[in-house]
């Protein structure tokens, strides 16, 4: 655990952990509200936004990408609502139409434009490049207090850290309204809460987390982190507070274990090269969910029927 670890592994692990937490926290509410697939939809629709932002500005800077992603998300929400209302079509199908088409558009734009000079291709969008977010300026643990070296940290680290703080802040401020409106929307409306606005705010916060995570770790891991840790946590306890705590624990375990297994696992098995860290993190979170499905103390359904 020397200088090499700090340079090569510290920042990716931290980014992985922050991403996992930022996605898992709102994921708890999305899973409980049966909106789990919003993460899936968001991570598909931001692709054309990011590509267009790149084509317009010619760079892959933070702000153009964020604005492009936000514009694409807003466009998707408008399209879904329009299709749902104009065509009187259920939300799931309307979502399916919009996110597949926008993703296809993004892929086509990518293939038609010259993006060979930058980290922007379909594989990157799907799988991310967690491994490449290394801290070249570091010389060892002492770099953590060296301002010159700290300035060379990958910008993604600060971005995802701030996003995580923002998500935590949102949940902290709106904890009670979120909890009440998630479990009993009718009651929440009776006591005067604006449940529609609250639900929208939750989706927006999730979208911000997804976009911030997207360019660091790719879309697949985002979907996994939105759903797997909260779903596993849901099978562990009946109390929301405990569930959120469990989900954070699962998210952190997935991020660390996934990264370590991807980076060092093949070496232990006699291989020579690392495998995809993002994929491995998703895999580990899936294994945790599988264990919870098999052994979780609260996995049974009580009350509501299977179709509910």
């Amino acid at each position: 655990m020397g200088a090499e670890f700090v340079i090569l592994s510290l920042t990716p692990i931290l980014i992985g952990i922050f991403t996992a937490i930022a996605c898992a926290l709102p994921g708890n509410f999305l899973v409980l509200r049966k909106q789990a697939l919003i993460g899936d939809a968001i991570s598909h629709v931001v692709l054309p936004g990011i590509v267009v932002a790149f084509l317009v500005t010619g760079t892959v800077g933070t702000w153009p990408m964020m604005i492009g992603a936000a514009a694409a998300s807003i466009l998707a929400v408008i399209l879904i609502e329009a299709i749902r209302r104009l065509g009187r079509i259920e939300t799931g199908a309307a979502m399916g139409v919009v996110f597949t088409s926008m993703f296809a558009g993004g892929v086509l734009l990518l293939e038609r434009s010259d993006t060979s000079t930058v980290h922007l291709d379909v594989e990157h969008a799907l799988m991310g490049n967690l491994e490449s977010l290394i801290w070249l300026d570091a010389t060892g643990w002492e770099s953590l207090v060296d301002p010159v070296a700290l300035a060379g940290l990958p910008p993604e680290l600060l971005r995802i850290f701030l996003t995580m703080l923002g998500v935590i802040g949102f949940l902290w401020v709106f904890w009670r309204p979120l909890k009440i409106s998630t479990f009993d929307e009718g009651f929440a409306r009776v006591i005067g809460m604006r449940t529609g606005a609250l639900g929208m705010a939750l989706v927006i916060v999730s979208a911000i987390a997804a976009v911030a995570a997207f360019d660091a770790v790719g879309s697949i891991i985002v979907i996994a982190m939105f759903i797997c840790p909260p779903a596993a946590a849901r099978l562990m306890t009946n109390r929301l507070e405990h569930q959120v705590a469990w989900s954070v624990v699962f998210a952190v375990i997935s991020a660390i274990l996934g990264y370590v297994l991807a980076g060092y696992g093949p070496l232990w098995l006699g291989g020579t090269d690392a495998v995809s860290a993002a994929g491995m993190i998703a895999t580990v979170s899936g294994l945790i969910l599988a264990l919870a499905v098999a052994f979780g103390p609260c996995r049974e359904r009580t009350g509501a029927s299977a179709e509910g």
Partner: peptide
Amino acid sequence: SVFFGFGV
């Protein structure tokens, strides 16, 4: 996500 992640 998990199957796709494992596939990656």
